[in-house]
């Protein structure tokens, strides 16, 4: 069964037709070409496909696209400013060495963004909790946690 849906993706309103069975992840990657959102486990266990839906971190592989109808989705591609001006989280991830193979990074950054949007001054436990759905096999998480702390400071300072 086909459904006409309307999404706001990274600020743009898009209307498209999706099959009942398509996940939000499949639609983002295959229909909209937004391949920054990654498929790792495809079963909700790894956080690689994390995007924000109306501001909350969700697993796009565990969500039917049809159920995202009318909602606002932000993916990793929606963070940077004009001319690839890095979001403070992206900048901190780069500078702190928090990205190695980089495959899990978009998911981590989106989880962290959902956290900082709600809680601009998180402590270490809150940061670890916010990325508890995200699996990284390269970094051992230390530099990721440092990067989120550093971005929070920078974003807090800008206010």
């Amino acid at each position: 069964m086909k459904h006409d849906i309307e999404l706001k993706v990274n600020g743009d309103t898009v209307t498209l037709q999706v099959d009942s069975r398509r996940t939000l992840l499949e639609v983002l990657r295959e229909q909209l070409g937004l391949t920054g959102t990654k498929e790792m486990c495809n079963k909700g266990d790894c956080g690689g496909c994390t995007v924000t839906l109306d501001g909350n971190a969700v697993l796009s592989c565990m969500m039917l696209a049809v159920e995202a109808n009318g909602k606002e989705v932000v993916t990793i591609e929606g963070l940077a400013g004009e001319g690839y001006r890095l979001h403070p989280l992206q900048k901190a991830f780069v500078e702190r060495g928090a990205i190695q193979c980089g495959y899990c990074s978009p998911g981590f950054i989106m989880s962290a963004k959902a956290l900082l949007d709600k809680n601009p001054h998180p402590n270490g436990d809150q940061i670890r909790e916010a990325i508890s759905n995200n699996i990284c096999r390269c970094t051992g998480y230390v530099q990721i946690i440092e990067a989120i702390e550093s971005a929070a400071l920078e974003m807090g300072g800008a206010k």
């Binding site: 909700g44 697993l59 508890s132």
Partner: peptide
């Protein structure tokens, strides 16, 4: 229970 993503969904 679970993770932020799971609790949000």
């Amino acid at each position: 229970l679970g993770t932020p993503q799971i609790r949000n969904m």
